[in-house]
Nucleic acid binder design. Sequence first.
DNA 1: CGGAATTCTTGACGATCCGTCAATTGTTGA
DNA 2: TCAACAATTGACGGATCGTCAAGAATTCCG
Lengths: 244, 244
Amino acid sequence: MSTLTRKQREIAERERLILAVARGMLAERGYLGLNMDRIAEAVEYSKGTVYQHFASKEDLLATLYTDTARQRAAMFKRAASFNGKPRERVAAIGVADQLFVALNPDHFAVENILDVSDVFAKVSEERRNVFIHVKTAMMDVLMGIVRDAVDAGDLSLPDDAPLCQPLYGMWTQSLGHHKLAGQRRMPPFAGIDLEDALWRNYTIMLDGYQWAPLSSEWDYERTIERIRQEVFADEWARLHDRLA
Amino acid sequence: MSTLTRKQREIAERERLILAVARGMLAERGYLGLNMDRIAEAVEYSKGTVYQHFASKEDLLATLYTDTARQRAAMFKRAASFNGKPRERVAAIGVADQLFVALNPDHFAVENILDVSDVFAKVSEERRNVFIHVKTAMMDVLMGIVRDAVDAGDLSLPDDAPLCQPLYGMWTQSLGHHKLAGQRRMPPFAGIDLEDALWRNYTIMLDGYQWAPLSSEWDYERTIERIRQEVFADEWARLHDRLA
DNA sequence: CGGAATTCTTGACGATCCGTCAATTGTTGA
DNA sequence: TCAACAATTGACGGATCGTCAAGAATTCCG
């Protein structure tokens, strides 16, 4: 039993190794530079053994993605539970997103690859469900904040707008931002601080929604400082370590 | 000479055929279902002949992309020259974008593929320049509108915000929207009208910028109607034909 | 402890696809 | 008509994915 457990640990360890090597290879040489033979060689196991862990290249990529996606979802959840007004909690989500990307710079590149290589068609049912579960869990967290804001009277949506409309505005901006910021070559918007621009646009949009308290009536810089200290002290430190 | 011209026309015609077939194949079977052998078979020429037209698969994909990108840039240019206030011209850009996507539903899917397969590394210098030229031309058009708005006193940017900041907000939203709307499977935001949500968020954001005239002081629905009739009558009709 | 049963590991192999190029077919011009 | 040139072909080499029979290692049990 003890030996079996040792074996199982070895296998788990090897899986981590494969994933780490694959991640590095992907970051360094891109999607086309990533191949199973090279991975097998790098981890010093045969290809067959690698295929013992992952049913296909897409399966491996999907694992790479879900690993960080889970981390992102967890950070979002923690952000949403920040002790403050709903709009402050939205800011916390923004901080979470920013930190997450800084710590996992190639997450969205992997996401792109998954889109392109139509992973859903090749990945096991089970992993597909993890995908959907993580995504919907994140959405629910965000929707919860909007609902709280409406309930608290901080936000009243115009006309017949659905609850998720302001969310859609932030989500799309985030997506677009990550796409632009993650590109190696980037002719448009060269020379401006994209992170800063994103933040300012969030603020202006939420002010446009009249989501109280407005940026003119509240010190959100202070809020962000608090979030970094109270919620993401660990990540904030890790980020600084990495930069140093 | 006449014969030579005929030959040249044949070649040009064949190139169009190849591109059309490739586009259809891409739409139908995705990136992984697109391969040069199959294209050659479908157009009933040998692979060697296909390679006479395109140096590589990436070269073909890049051509597919630049063809529609050029069209998009042209539509943006026409939109920007709409006879109206700067903010109306922004709306015209929105209409242009909406029409363009409706007419070229897989444009952004191709863009994604280009990102992933690192086309810049494999495509000729000349095509690379076309890329950059089209992108920067579009940016210049948009920046021109913002500048006009500032000059006309319709818009004053807060603090030390750069001229392109509102642009960044709209650009990223557009990118994110196209990404979400273009996905086959889409758990989040299912059931809401994404097009409508995008438009409303644009409006709220520009209102947030205090870009005059505000949506409360101007009938932008009327403006959009005018744009469709005056600038994009042709595309509007084509779209309706296709739907019918 | 010893050998059968089970599990793990390997790398050669078939299949697919990209891009090339020598050979073939077609066209032009004298 | 035929030599020179151009266009076309598809077999081929190389790269990569994923498989699987054979061999190695480990566990189980009398």
